[in-house]
Every structure is written in C-alpha cells, then in structure tokens.
Write a protein that binds this DNA or RNA. Sequence first.
DNA 1: TTCGTTGAAAAGACGCTCAT
DNA 2: ATGAGCGTCTTTTCAACGAA
Length: 462
Amino acid sequence: MANASLLSPTNKHFFKPLLPGFQRNLNIPVKFFSEHIEGKHEGKTVKLRTDASKRTWEVKMDGNRLTEGWKEFVEAHDLRIRDFVVFRHEGDMVFHVTALGPSCCEIQYPQSISHEEGEESGEIEISEREVEENLQKEYDQSSADLNCFSQSVTHSNISNDLVTLPRDFAKRNGLDKGMHEIVLMNEEGKSWESEVRSRMSGQVFIVGGWKSLCSENKLKGGDSCTFKLLQNAKTPVFQLCSRIGESRFVKLTPTLNSLEIGKQHLPVSFTKGNGLIHPGEIILVDKDRVEWSMKLQVDNRGGMHIFGGNDWKSFCAANEVGGGESLTLELIRGGLSPLFKFFSKIEQPSFEAEDRRHKRARVHNGSQETDKGEPSRATKMGPELEKREKTAEKGEPSRASNKSSGKQGNLQKTQACSVTDHVAKVKESVVDTLTSIRRFQAELETMEQKLEDSLQEINKLS
DNA sequence: TTCGTTGAAAAGACGCTCAT
DNA sequence: ATGAGCGTCTTTTCAACGAA
C-alpha cells in the first residue's frame, strides 16, 4: 500500500490493536473521538476504505463504538486477534484503514477483496457469496500447502533420474497406485515430461525428467526443493517453488496416551521448516477463539512437542478432537512465542493409522483396554460428554471455562458442583482473564513502541 | 530398465525418574 | 499430583544396491 497520505499531518490517525472480542465492535479512542467526532458527527455512519478493495464499507457508530457492519469488514479483511488497524481520517467521516499483522508489518492481500461485477463504491452490503469466497480462499490456501512436498536432491537420485515421492503426498493425490504421466515444471514455466510410478513396496517415484530439471535449474546434491501440485487432473503438473519446505499447517493426531500425559509431538519437518527451534511458551487458539497457553519443549534430539498437561486434553476437547482423531493447526506466528490457531478437525483417520495406534497401545500397555471394557480417562471424555460440555459452555467462551471443563473429566462431578465450586471457577476465570489481559498489555506496549518508532522514521524520511 | 530388498536414519510413542 | 527431562523401543521412510 502506498501510504503517502499517512505522512500527511493534515490527516488525523489513530490505531487500534485487535483484542479478543474485537469482531463484534471496535471502540474509537476516547481522545480521538472527543477531538474529531463528538458533537460534529455523532450518530452518523462512518465509511471505511482500504487499499485491498475498491469498496467502501459503511459502519454504524454508536457513541465511540463501531458496531453494525464492522463484523463484515473484519471478515472481509480476515482481521485477527493481535493484528493492528490504523485509521486515517480523510474527512467527512471517511476513514482509510490499514491493517498490520502481529509483526507490525502491513498485511498483504493477494488481490482486491471485491472484484466482481456490481462492485460500486456505494455498495454496502457484503454478500454471502463474498464471505464464502473468503472461506474458500482460506481453504484453497491450506490445500495449496497440502499439495506441496519437499525433496532433497542427491547425487544418487540425479544419476538414476529418479526421485522418491513422499508417501502421504502420493496417497493424498491419488498417485500411490499404478503409473501416472506428470509434468515437471520450473518457476519460469519450462516443463519436462515425466512419470510417477509406484512399487510393490509402496514406494512411489518420479521417474524421468528429474535429471534434466536439476541440471537446468542448477540443483545439485545436498540441495532441497519444494514442488507444488498445480493440477491434479489427467496430467498433474509439479511446479518447482522457490520456498523451501515450509508449511503453515500441521496435522496432529493425539493418541489417548498423549492426551493423558498432555504431550504432543510436532513433526520435525514442520518445526524446522518454520524455524521453531526454541523452547518456550506457545499459544493455541481453539475453534471458539479461546486462547490456551502451553509450552513448547525440545528433547535432546531436537524433536519438539507441545506440553500442556491437562490443557492439551482440554484444548482437544474444546475442538471436539478425541484420542486417535486428527486436527490441523495453522501457525499464525512463529518466533519465540509461537501462536497456533485450530484450523480444522480431520474427521476420518485412516483405518491403517487407527489400527496402528491400537496395536501400539496394546503392545506398550497390556492393561490398556481401549477397544472394550473399562474405558480410559481419555475415553470418558468422549463425544457424549464433549457435547454436554459444549452445551454448558454456550455463550461467550472463556479460557477458564474450557480449562475447568477439561479438568473435570467426569460428568458426575460436573453435576454435583456446589455453589462454592462455581465461585471458585468464576474466580479462576477472572484471574485467568486478568492474566491474559496483562500479557496482552505487555505485548501491546512493545508493539506500540515499535509502531511509533516506525512512524517517526517514516516522518523523518518525509 | 525395472523392481525387490535391505539397512540406516528419522520420527513417534511411551514410560521412567526426579524436582517441585 | 503434576510437570519436566530424558531414554528406549517401535515404526516408517527412503536411499542405495543388486538381481532379473
């Protein structure tokens, strides 16, 4: 976005960090409101513009609060907790809005958010179709990540003109059986005809074209490259990507045991690919946008796992993911304090995987009767109980409410809760919320300082 | 050239011990 | 009781080799 006008002293600005609950409404800072709006434009609607769209968004203002229409604006721009929005007053209650991510950098939108026919600046209502498109966009993005695979280049695979295709990738894209013609393509669009073949052993290979592609693109032994499946039709195209193997999405399959001990391994390829190498605190955001603070630990081999104790189990329960089921998490922010968001539950784990897990459970713990007989504690947190808990948690979710429900793990106990228990839970809830707010405040202060520094530098440049 | 086999390495799961 | 750290065992993956 070209922000020349951002530098203009004639345009008044304010910025707002997006905190939990921001989706419903947004408060204009009192000082800004009293100086520029109060007594002049009260009760009017404000018009919001962004560089991401040619559309003007009309939002109702109740007092200093943006209400009706704000949610649509948020959804259309995929604004999230910890983002920042900078409002630039262009006069006559028109604001230009710039969205900044948690890194304090401007959020880049791939293309204009609204680009269909019927787009007029005066159009206010966001259509369901556009909301669906936003969701579809998000889905496509995740699919794109799932349609990528990384491969290391070796002297052997170059000399044999043959390279292994990761099993899960081949399976996911229906390439794990028989022979398939494919096209290998580099970033410039140059292509090489090739084939995908599978073996009795289950290994799947790309045969042919590999040597030429490596030669043409100066790939040599020890290099690593990422391919993206562009079309999974009759002739799939594998395009060489410049990115080296990172994916924002990670699929996890908590076992009953991992839920019990509160420990969940993260694939090394994912952690390394995203630069997650330091132990520390991580934040998981569940499907209700409730935050869960857990720990990221590293073992002596560099393997990483989430350690959350009961919180891990409760987090999975909050997302209706039980032992043996899979969920996908999206890495929103890496660094020293990574932030993950629950992305989706994967409904049907493969039978082989499930069978394998059962086999392991039996091998390692003969007394663990997961198939029948006395269920384990984790099994008690099954769908029925989860459903009841969910019903009880209707309304504004709070981390404490989830935590306490997770800790209960026993329906009878839930029903027998005394007034004292409720008071204790409410107290816990308040304390937790306060802790979250204080943490946010500390982070906000840091971010605010960074932002101000940036503005000062920009002003110097101007 | 194709394809089966093998062995090493990596990853995942689990459990034990110790500290708090 | 819970959390943290670490060791060990099992499973999976894949490069490399060699026979047909």
